[in-house]
């Protein structure tokens, strides 16, 4: 039987998961030091565009991924939750850096001790601040997680 060579066969499940990992658009949620490293990851040398991720969306409605880059204060926490709620499903969260993962070295009245108190977190990226390479490793780990995980979120 003749089959043209530009047809691939796969399962719909796999296709959906694959399409989710490619061009996963992050919302700009730069808070502190880590935001600068996030911008460095997006710019020339490290080039997040390789993963189709260089478009940091200003509107949460157009974004799939929230990279919480920096320390989350008590005053910022409601805002962060609101931005997360406004994002369309399916959505993922990366807690970038020690402060957003656990509160880091600032164990005091002003900071939320880990952003997982407010929103569900998929990947924690360690470091203070994590270099662009660490952030990319976190993103690739998230891709693996999506490829291996459930399609229904």
């Amino acid at each position: 039987m003749y089959t043209p060579d530009n047809i691939l066969t796969t399962t719909i499940d796999k296709a959906v998961r694959w399409s989710r990992t490619q061009s996963m658009w992050p919302v700009t949620f730069g808070l502190a030091c880590c935001a600068i490293e996030m911008m460095a990851a997006g710019s020339a040398k490290y080039d997040l565009a390789r993963y189709g991720m260089e478009v940091f969306r200003a509107s949460p409605r157009q974004a799939d991924l929230m990279i919480v880059a920096g320390r989350v204060s008590q005053k910022m926490a409601p805002v962060l939750r609101q931005v997360y709620d406004q994002m369309a499903d399916p959505k993922w969260v990366i807690a970038m850096g020690a402060c957003s993962s656990t509160g880091g070295m600032f164990n005091n009245y002003a900071l939320v001790q880990g952003v997982d108190h407010i929103v569900p977190v998929d990947i924690y990226v360690p470091g203070c601040p994590p270099g662009p390479q660490s952030l990319m490793h976190g993103i690739l780990t998230l891709h693996d997680k999506i490829m291996d995980g459930e399609i229904n979120r």
């Binding site: 509160g103 164990n107 005091n108 009245y109 001790q113």
Partner: peptide, 17 residues
Amino acid sequence: WNGHPLRKNYGSGRIPV
């Protein structure tokens, strides 16, 4: 917010890890 955080009798709000 209640209280004035930098006063000496205001605890630092440290949560045990």
